[in-house]
């Protein structure tokens, strides 16, 4: 069966995207990434001293991420504020998605805090959060090998598609596969999957994610250049 996307997109087409850097003046670095109705803000505070002290690492600084949805962010009922199991897991995988590109060896005993906050969610929030967070880290001047771009790909019926919206994400019998990629090397730093796929479908999905992450990467770079007054080419 051929699945037609309810919002009229092509299978390889993302929702419209927008990125901004330096949106929160109190933070050392900050960024916004929007994909469709999903909006993520990220702020970076630090490097600053890490307390309690037993968490400190004398050999390098620590990256600490926190993902949080605002209580009114999702369609449907209000969600109770504060971390739940889902938010804690996403905080952890966000940290792991970003850790491979950043170098905190010059900041022993310190922490770099990344706060990802979502005022509005319509699927794809962990990926939007990672996109925003990597721009915010760059904005904060943290030493990085590259940015990280992330997107969810998936399967609905027999079709592989990119950037699932809420309907596609919760499609019965479908598969959701969020990925984060280091665009310059193609390495994958976040990989999760809910659902079933054949090896061939997986290959197709990975390729689609890689191509899409390169598009996201351009948007991220343009937003950073825009903040620092460099003309985008």
């Amino acid at each position: 069966m051929v699945y037609k996307r309810e919002d009229g997109r092509k299978l390889t087409q993302t929702r419209d995207m927008e990125a901004k850097v330096g949106i929160i003046p109190n933070a050392i670095g900050s960024a916004m990434f929007r994909i469709g109705k999903t909006i993520a803000y990220a702020t970076v505070y630090g490097p600053r001293e890490l307390y309690p002290r037993f968490l400190q690492d004398p050999s390098k600084g620590i990256l600490r991420c926190n993902y949080n949805m605002m209580p009114f962010a999702s369609s449907g009922e209000r969600s109770r504020p504060g971390p739940n199991r889902r938010a804690k897991e996403i905080s952890l995988i966000t940290e792991k998605a970003l850790a491979p590109v950043i170098d905190l060896s010059k900041f022993p005993n310190a922490v770099v805090d990344v706060f990802v906050e979502l005022p509005q969610c319509d699927a794809g929030s962990r990926c939007a959060g990672i996109c925003a967070a990597s721009m915010a880290l760059a904005d904060a001047g943290i030493a990085m090998k590259d940015l990280v771009a992330a997107v969810a790909v998936g399967r609905v019926e027999d079709q592989i598609l990119v950037d699932l919206n809420y309907i596609e994400d919760s499609y019965e019998g479908g598969t959701d596969l969020p990925l984060a990629i280091i665009p310059s090397t193609g390495q994958i730093t976040l990989l999760q999957m809910d659902g079933v796929m054949t090896k061939e479908q997986l290959k197709k999905a990975f390729d689609l994610a890689t191509v899409t992450c390169k598009q996201i990467y351009e948007i991220q770079k343009a937003a950073l250049k825009n903040k620092f007054g460099v003309q985008a080419q």
Binding site: P25, N26, P71, F72, C121
Partner: peptide
Amino acid sequence: GSFPQAEGSARVKIGNTDVIVGIKLE
């Protein structure tokens, strides 16, 4: 109406102070 998925929303800026208010109905 800054965040239309909520039943009501607003964003107020006073200088660098930036506050979002979201309303859900149940």
